[in-house]
């Protein structure tokens, strides 16, 4: 297996999405193309350039420390599995 393929397979595992073999192949081919397309960017000389951290110009955008309870009726309706106040998931062994 190539290095790219290996990292791609690992990425699929990390991001936890079921993807069938055929689509994996498509993704692999696309990724090869994409990385090829990115080559000029990798080659660009950026020594001494400070990276941008934020698209916006806001700083110290704070909220006052005031507690407020939320009406949870609609929020809880959104849960696929909710039981006696808890969100439930398949059993986890710790």
């Amino acid at each position: 297996m190539t290095n790219t393929r290996e990292t791609l397979e690992k990425a699929i595992q990390v991001i936890k999405i079921e993807i069938d073999p055929e689509e994996r192949n498509i993704l692999h081919d696309d990724l090869i193309q994409f990385l090829e397309w990115l080559k000029p960017l990798k080659a660009l000389d950026t020594s001494g350039v400070t990276p941008v951290r934020f698209s916006h110009v806001a700083v110290n955008a704070f909220r006052d420390d005031q507690a407020l309870s939320c009406d949870l009726k609609e929020v809880r309706k959104a849960a696929p599995n909710f039981d006696e106040g808890f969100y439930t998931v398949p059993p986890i062994i710790e």
Binding site: L8, A11, V14, L31
Partner: peptide
């Protein structure tokens, strides 16, 4: 799916 996987690839160690 593509964006999730490619994004993960991009952020991976190395």
């Amino acid at each position: 799916r593509r964006r999730s996987v490619f994004g993960t690839y991009i952020l991976s160690k190395g």
